[in-house]
Write a protein that binds this DNA or RNA. Structure first.
Lengths: 337, 337
DNA sequence: TCATCCTATTAGATCGATCTAAATTTTACG
DNA sequence: CGTAAAATTTAGATCGATCTAATAGGATGA
């Protein structure tokens, strides 16, 4: 029924050479005479040959496959991240195995085993909440290179690609202060990862640096309900803030809606600033001031770090940090109209 | 350096049985005696054995890998779609290869070749703009089962999972009419795929069905610039609409901003309705009335269709259509406040 | 006791490409 | 022309699991 697969042997047969020679052509070795190469390439094209990478890997141990594990996929942040990683891997003629840990440790373990069984060459991991540094060393013990991204566990265990949220938060706070919003609160999330720690740390530093007044930190869940209820909590702060910096744009958008429901005009009565600059930041009303962190670029960097490590397992550990950029919009900066 | 890989042979050696028996245990065959199985399982656990699926596939032709090709990844619609597909495949102990065609035909071809080389068991394809039906039959000629999703090319060539946009559009138009917005325009995209055709067709039908007045169709590019400029075009229509139905929520959100910039209040002066009900629909101001199409479910359905076809290549072709649901919000339905 | 039928296990070939080491052909040069 | 050196090509083993067909060891029944 299904047409027999075209193999190296067939090509060899038809071209009148040995399997080994054809293999050399496939791998673009310079050892083959030009005339021979031409002839073989012709036959390959005629028969529509497709090299079986699985079989190749069995012998030479490179599957040209890498795994990416993200903790969720509903946030479009991760989509862009993936998109960047996929792009670079595609350029290097590799393929991306995708999996979603849902921030669940045992699921994350399952995925790693599955990836291992599939012989992936390496992994880009955004560790699930609660991941222990031991996991990283265990993975490396399997001979599987890892790059962490967006979140980090352990100190200098692996290469890392991420955003500079410390600087991002500083930009945001500086911007608020520059526009006269001096009593600032931070709207954070209940889940604790290096991603939230970093922002909190950045917030403390930025306050010190700018001399702004700390109106405290509020934590909500990173869900629609959490976002919806955030305004209430923020407005209940004893020292009511004039500006609020949010963990990400989703919370910021939710906060703006809540403020409005409470009769306050975002950007006029209270300034709101988000982080990440997702596409939705441009679509809220008023458009949301946010700090762009370029997830596509982070994904691409993570991929590049992994490719580099695959080429040289002994290279020194590297960190690639993408610089953030403030996108000032009307949620913090009403122009006279 | 890197610890030698644990193979079936080693397990066999240690357990004092043959490789073949161990293989039977791995595949959970009932042919093995209980005592033997126990012993072998113990050894596998002790040595941390991981079955090499690539090697297995070489012999038995199932890689437990499927490919998913989407035309872009920045739209969070596709993320949710992916998330659903990945979930079902994970449940079936399969792994997802992800690739992004960027709606580019030659890139789509490349990806298919790459997938072929990796020996994927099947593909979920959201065909790039301009894909010919011939491609589908070609893929099937390779012996590679395909499920189309979200977009469809050709008639009943493959299984298909998608949303019922005809009904979705009907719901939206009916809703507009019910709330007194009777002169309705459709804001579409310049790229023509089955996805846009279906919505346009649905629009024509819905007008006929509800007796609403056609205020014409406007096409813009599905980009931020396109969305931003859409209001101008809509307002320039000779027969200025009182309600606008949009291709998706991104355009709808852009349109609302544009309307506001032109001094019109969305939901009061002009009703706006989106399609897809992305998370951002709840975060715009006013919150956007939209038709939920449940991309996560569509992705899951596509995956289920593919799993089914992998099990039985001769099964009749099936279509799985998820029913849409109207989410009424304030962009079309101001309550007195 | 022996033929028969299970049940449990296994030897050996096999999937498709790559690697090693050796064989063959070509070229170069005295 | 002869032979060493260089350039090409190749036979055969190999990666790790699965499949086929055959085998060993009981249990059963006549």
């Amino acid at each position: 029924m299904r047409p027999k697969k075209v193999t190296l042997d067939m090509i060899a047969q038809v071209a009148g050479v040995s399997r080994a020679t054809v293999s050399l052509v496939v791998r673009k070795s310079p050892l083959v005479a030009d005339r021979t190469r031409k002839k073989i390439e012709q036959v390959m094209a005629d028969l529509d040959y497709v090299r079986d990478i699985g079989a190749a890997r069995l012998r030479n141990n490179s599957s040209r496959t890498i795994g990416v594990i993200v903790p969720n996929l509903v946030n479009s942040f991760f989509t862009e991240f993936l998109s960047g990683a996929e792009r670079i891997m595609g350029e290097d003629d590799r393929v991306v195995l995708l999996a979603n840990s849902h921030d669940d440790l045992s699921r994350q373990d399952d995925i790693l085993q599955r990836f291992r069984g599939h012989g992936v060459d390496g992994v880009i991991l955004c560790p699930a909440e609660g991941t222990e540094p031991g996991l990283l060393t265990r993975i490396q013990g399997w001979g599987m290179p890892v790059v962490q991204s967006l979140r980090e566990v352990g100190q200098d265990l692996t290469d890392y690609a991420g955003a500079d949220y410390i600087e991002g938060v500083r930009l945001a706070v500086q911007h608020l202060v520059d526009h006269g919003w001096r009593r600032i609160a931070f709207l954070s999330v209940t889940a604790h990862t290096s991603a939230s720690d970093e922002r909190l740390k950045g917030f403390a530093r930025a306050l010190a640096l700018t001399g702004a007044e700390d109106a405290d930190t509020v934590e909500v869940e990173l869900t629609w309900d959490g976002a919806a209820g955030s305004a209430e909590k923020v407005l209940a702060l004893p020292n009511r803030p004039t500006g609020v910096l949010c963990f990400n744009d989703i919370l910021a958008a939710g906060l703006m809606l809540g403020l409005r429901r409470a009769g306050l005009e975002p950007g006029v009565d209270v300034a709101v600033v988000g982080l990440d600059d997702l596409p939705l930041a441009q679509l809220t009303y008023p458009p949301l001031t946010s700090v762009a962190v370029f997830p596509e670029q982070i994904g691409a960097s993570a991929a590049r770090l992994l490719v580099r490590r695959l080429a040289d397992a002994t290279a020194p550990i590297e960190r690639s940090i993408v610089s953030p950029q403030l996108m000032a919009r009307q949620s913090s900066w009403q122009e006279a109209d």
